[in-house]
Amino acid sequence: MNYTILVTGAAYGTQNSSTAFLFCKSLLKTKNTLHSIFFYCDGVLNANRMTTPAIDEFNLIEAWQELHKKHKVKLYVCNSAALRRGVIEDEILLDINIKKGNLAFFFQLSGLVELANSIKICDRIIQF
Protein backbone atom coordinates (compact mmCIF):
# COMPACT_ATOMS: atom_id res chain seq x y z
CA MET A 1 0.00 0.00 0.00
CA ASN A 2 1.13 3.52 -0.80
CA TYR A 3 0.34 6.20 1.82
CA THR A 4 0.12 9.98 2.05
CA ILE A 5 -0.07 11.49 5.52
CA LEU A 6 -1.89 14.78 6.17
CA VAL A 7 -0.78 16.57 9.34
CA THR A 8 -3.06 19.38 10.53
CA GLY A 9 -1.91 19.74 14.14
CA ALA A 10 0.89 21.98 15.39
CA ALA A 11 4.17 20.45 16.47
CA TYR A 12 3.44 21.20 20.11
CA GLY A 13 0.20 21.68 22.01
CA THR A 14 -1.65 18.75 20.41
CA GLN A 15 -0.93 15.06 19.88
CA ASN A 16 -1.65 15.19 16.14
CA SER A 17 1.91 15.67 14.94
CA SER A 18 3.64 13.35 17.36
CA THR A 19 1.08 10.62 16.61
CA ALA A 20 1.56 11.20 12.88
CA PHE A 21 5.33 10.93 13.30
CA LEU A 22 5.06 7.66 15.24
CA PHE A 23 2.66 6.29 12.62
CA CYS A 24 5.09 7.22 9.83
CA LYS A 25 7.98 5.51 11.62
CA SER A 26 5.89 2.37 12.09
CA LEU A 27 4.73 2.46 8.48
CA LEU A 28 8.32 2.60 7.24
CA LYS A 29 9.11 -0.60 9.15
CA THR A 30 6.52 -2.49 7.09
CA LYS A 31 6.38 -3.34 3.40
CA ASN A 32 4.16 -0.30 2.79
CA THR A 33 5.37 2.88 1.10
CA LEU A 34 5.20 6.36 2.57
CA HIS A 35 4.91 8.60 -0.49
CA SER A 36 4.71 11.99 1.22
CA ILE A 37 3.68 13.99 4.25
CA PHE A 38 1.62 17.12 3.69
CA PHE A 39 1.45 19.75 6.45
CA TYR A 40 -1.72 21.84 6.38
CA CYS A 41 -3.54 24.29 8.68
CA ASP A 42 -1.64 24.47 12.00
CA GLY A 43 0.41 21.51 10.80
CA VAL A 44 2.63 23.95 8.91
CA LEU A 45 4.11 24.94 12.28
CA ASN A 46 6.02 21.64 12.11
CA ALA A 47 8.19 23.34 9.48
CA ASN A 48 9.16 26.35 11.62
CA ARG A 49 12.88 26.06 12.32
CA MET A 50 12.57 28.75 15.02
CA THR A 51 10.59 26.38 17.26
CA THR A 52 12.78 25.46 20.20
CA PRO A 53 11.46 22.79 22.56
CA ALA A 54 12.81 22.46 26.10
CA ILE A 55 16.02 20.46 26.36
CA ASP A 56 14.21 17.48 27.87
CA GLU A 57 11.45 17.45 25.22
CA PHE A 58 11.39 15.49 21.98
CA ASN A 59 12.33 17.77 19.06
CA LEU A 60 9.64 16.96 16.52
CA ILE A 61 10.91 19.35 13.85
CA GLU A 62 14.33 17.64 13.87
CA ALA A 63 12.60 14.25 13.86
CA TRP A 64 10.70 15.11 10.65
CA GLN A 65 13.98 16.24 9.09
CA GLU A 66 15.71 12.98 10.09
CA LEU A 67 12.80 11.03 8.62
CA HIS A 68 13.38 12.81 5.30
CA LYS A 69 17.15 12.30 5.40
CA LYS A 70 16.91 8.61 6.25
CA HIS A 71 13.95 7.59 4.08
CA LYS A 72 13.71 10.37 1.46
CA VAL A 73 10.08 11.07 2.41
CA LYS A 74 8.79 14.29 0.84
CA LEU A 75 7.77 16.93 3.40
CA TYR A 76 5.30 19.28 1.71
CA VAL A 77 4.03 22.42 3.43
CA CYS A 78 0.94 24.30 2.25
CA ASN A 79 2.21 27.67 1.10
CA SER A 80 -0.97 29.63 1.91
CA ALA A 81 -1.34 28.13 5.39
CA ALA A 82 2.36 28.74 6.06
CA LEU A 83 2.18 32.41 5.08
CA ARG A 84 -0.83 32.91 7.35
CA ARG A 85 1.16 31.48 10.25
CA GLY A 86 4.46 33.24 9.57
CA VAL A 87 6.40 30.30 8.13
CA ILE A 88 8.31 31.63 5.12
CA GLU A 89 11.24 30.74 2.88
CA ASP A 90 14.49 32.67 2.66
CA GLU A 91 14.33 35.82 0.55
CA ILE A 92 10.60 35.66 0.06
CA LEU A 93 9.32 38.24 -2.36
CA LEU A 94 6.71 39.98 -0.27
CA ASP A 95 6.23 43.58 0.64
CA ILE A 96 7.73 42.80 4.06
CA ASN A 97 11.26 42.44 2.57
CA ILE A 98 12.46 39.47 4.63
CA LYS A 99 15.81 38.01 3.64
CA LYS A 100 16.02 35.12 6.12
CA GLY A 101 12.98 32.91 6.49
CA ASN A 102 12.17 30.29 9.09
CA LEU A 103 11.22 27.32 6.90
CA ALA A 104 13.14 24.34 8.28
CA PHE A 105 15.50 22.40 6.03
CA PHE A 106 14.02 19.60 3.89
CA PHE A 107 10.49 21.02 4.08
CA GLN A 108 9.24 22.43 0.80
CA LEU A 109 6.42 24.85 0.23
CA SER A 110 3.76 23.64 -2.19
CA GLY A 111 0.11 24.06 -2.97
CA LEU A 112 -2.95 21.92 -2.59
CA VAL A 113 -2.32 20.61 -6.11
CA GLU A 114 0.58 18.60 -4.67
CA LEU A 115 -1.75 17.15 -2.04
CA ALA A 116 -4.29 16.27 -4.74
CA ASN A 117 -1.59 14.55 -6.83
CA SER A 118 -0.40 12.60 -3.80
CA ILE A 119 -3.95 11.48 -3.02
CA LYS A 120 -4.44 10.46 -6.65
CA ILE A 121 -1.42 8.15 -6.78
CA CYS A 122 -1.71 6.72 -3.24
CA ASP A 123 -3.92 3.96 -1.95
CA ARG A 124 -4.58 5.65 1.40
CA ILE A 125 -4.48 9.10 2.95
CA ILE A 126 -4.43 9.34 6.72
CA GLN A 127 -5.09 12.63 8.52
CA PHE A 128 -3.73 13.55 11.92
Results as ranks from 00 to 15, higher is better:
46 N>G: 10
77 V>P: 07
75 L>H: 04
51 T>W: 07
94 L>M: 09
74 K>R: 12
46 N>Q: 08
70 K>T: 13
54 A>F: 05
64 W>F: 14
76 Y>S: 00
61 I>T: 15
78 C>K: 01
63 A>D: 14
69 K>R: 15
49 R>W: 02
59 N>C: 14
53 P>Q: 12
67 L>Y: 03
77 V>T: 12
70 K>S: 05
86 G>C: 02
56 D>G: 02
45 L>N: 09
78 C>S: 06
55 I>G: 09
64 W>S: 07
70 K>W: 00
83 L>T: 08
89 E>M: 04
94 L>K: 06
89 E>P: 09
59 N>M: 12
79 N>H: 08
72 K>P: 00
92 I>V: 07
65 Q>V: 13
58 F>D: 07
84 R>D: 02
75 L>E: 07
46 N>D: 10
78 C>N: 07
89 E>S: 09
94 L>E: 12
87 V>H: 05
65 Q>M: 09
53 P>T: 12
84 R>L: 10
67 L>N: 05
95 D>F: 11
53 P>N: 10
64 W>E: 07
53 P>E: 13
54 A>L: 11
59 N>G: 10
50 M>A: 15
81 A>M: 10
80 S>Q: 09
82 A>W: 01
93 L>R: 05
85 R>V: 01
67 L>V: 06
94 L>V: 05
78 C>E: 02
71 H>Y: 14
85 R>Y: 01
50 M>L: 15
61 I>S: 12
62 E>G: 01
55 I>L: 14
50 M>F: 15
64 W>R: 05
54 A>H: 11
90 D>N: 11
60 L>D: 13
50 M>I: 06
49 R>Y: 07
67 L>A: 03
66 E>V: 11
70 K>Y: 00
48 N>A: 13
61 I>R: 02
46 N>L: 08
45 L>G: 04
71 H>L: 02
69 K>S: 12
88 I>T: 11
84 R>C: 05
62 E>H: 09
77 V>N: 08
81 A>E: 07
56 D>K: 09
90 D>I: 02
54 A>V: 03
82 A>R: 06
55 I>C: 09
78 C>A: 04
49 R>F: 04
84 R>E: 03
56 D>H: 11
83 L>P: 01
92 I>A: 05
44 V>W: 08
89 E>Q: 09
92 I>L: 06
73 V>D: 01
87 V>R: 05
69 K>E: 08
58 F>G: 00
95 D>R: 13
66 E>R: 13
75 L>W: 08
48 N>M: 08
73 V>Y: 01
91 E>W: 00
78 C>H: 03
81 A>K: 02
94 L>P: 00
61 I>H: 02
61 I>E: 08
86 G>F: 01
45 L>Q: 11
79 N>P: 00
90 D>K: 01
87 V>C: 09
92 I>M: 03
73 V>F: 00
